[in-house]
Amino acid sequence: TPSASDVQLTEEAVRRYLIRKPMTTKDLLKKFQTKRTGLSSDQTVNVLAQILKKLNPERKNINDKMHFYLTE
């Protein structure tokens, strides 16, 4: 059932994380693990890509890794 997933991959959830602190794509994927959202790996990648394209966050390099972030 849908209620089995305790985490939802939504634009609002991603936005809240990126306002809090800069994150890499890997950081974000850890927040929306497939076992918690009930989505497949492909769905997770596709949905997260669409959300990030829409949010169009700022980017900066931290420790040689690309991080995304948003300001309010």
Binding site: T25, K26, L29, S41, V45, K53, N56, R59, M66
Partner: peptide, 20 residues
Amino acid sequence: SSSEADEMAAALDAELNSFM
């Protein structure tokens, strides 16, 4: 597994890099 996470991150990075 961590390798699956790496593959997902690589796929996502590639998708975003082709866009931005």
